[in-house]
Computed example of a mutant assay.
Amino acid sequence: MEELAELESRQTQILRRIAQLELSILRPSNNYLNIQIPATATEERLSAVLVDGGVKDFSFKRVPSDYYDWAFEARRDVLGAASIHHLCKSIVLVNTQASSDITDCSDRQNSKYYVVVVQYTARFSADTVKNFLYTLNNGKIPKKRFNLRLAPEEISQKLTGFEHNGVTCVGMKTDIPVILDEAIVKLHPDYFWLGGGEIDLKLGIRTSEFINFTKPFIVNCSGS
């Protein structure tokens, strides 16, 4: 057991070294000269949206192109996140059993689509969201009318304006209701990371400000 623990410790150290090397390779001249990479149009637009929405404590970070091939520990280190549990994602869900007259997101309580923000380390439960929406509508809509599934990638991109791995619930093309996993609200410190509108752009934000900005439903919809 001690040998296994030592091997895991060494592996973690190696992953951190790799993350540091990748970042230095990504922009060595910028680190050396202490020059900021110019913000892209996406970063500028989303920053303006956040500021207009009263958000003050947020930041964007550019990551290497192979970021999603890395272990969670390496991703944590390159972002400077507090833990691997502070790494989150936004996924677009579609209610495949919604009645034929429910085609958009105009009704937050009974929307055709939802964006759910969950931790990468958590196991998302669609059934929990189904039960939440059923209760939210006071049981007036049959439970069989709720069946949340991952929206096809082309639908997600059409609704949000962001491609796979770049999806964020800030500045979306469509005002899709947001569901925030309760586990994220309980994180300490209360600052988490999610997609930033581009595949290699990540957004860090204070949880309380995210909640004030997106007005999400906070649901216990995952497990470890």
Rank of each mutant, 00 (worst) to 15 (best):
D52G: 08
D52R: 12
D52L: 06
D52Q: 11
G53H: 10
G53C: 12
G53Q: 09
G53F: 11
G54L: 13
G54M: 13
V55H: 07
V55G: 09
K56I: 06
K56E: 11
D57L: 07
F58T: 10
S59M: 04
S59T: 05
S59H: 01
F60I: 07
K61I: 00
K61D: 00
K61N: 00
R62P: 03
V63Y: 03
P64K: 02
P64A: 02
P64R: 01
P64S: 01
S65P: 01
S65W: 04
S65F: 05
D66W: 00
Y67S: 06
Y67K: 07
Y68Q: 15
D69A: 13
D69M: 13
W70H: 15
W70Q: 15
W70F: 15
W70Y: 15
W70P: 03
F72D: 15
F72N: 15
E73K: 07
E73P: 02
E73G: 08
E73T: 10
E73I: 14
E73A: 09
A74T: 07
A74Y: 02
A74M: 06
A74E: 04
A74N: 04
R75Q: 15
R75W: 10
R75Y: 09
R75D: 09
R75M: 12
R76I: 09
D77S: 06
D77W: 06
V78M: 15
V78D: 05
V78S: 14
L79T: 11
G80E: 08
G80Y: 06
G80W: 05
A81I: 08
A81W: 02
A81K: 03
A81V: 09
A81L: 08
A82S: 12
A82T: 06
S83T: 15
S83R: 11
S83P: 09
I84E: 10
I84P: 01
I84M: 08
I84A: 04
H85W: 09
H85P: 02
H86M: 03
H86G: 01
L87W: 03
L87D: 02
C88E: 02
C88N: 09
C88G: 02
C88S: 07
K89V: 00
S90E: 12
S90C: 15
S90M: 13
I91T: 02
V92E: 02
V92F: 06
V94L: 13
V94Q: 14
N95Y: 05
N95R: 07
N95L: 07
T96R: 15
Q97A: 12
Q97H: 11
A98P: 09
A98G: 12
S99R: 10
S99C: 05
S99M: 06
S100M: 00
S100P: 00
S100R: 04
D101S: 08
D101P: 01
D101A: 03
D101F: 06
D101V: 04
I102H: 03
I102W: 03
T103K: 13
T103L: 13
D104Y: 00
D104W: 00
D104K: 00
D104T: 00
D107H: 06
D107Q: 08
D107L: 06
D107F: 03
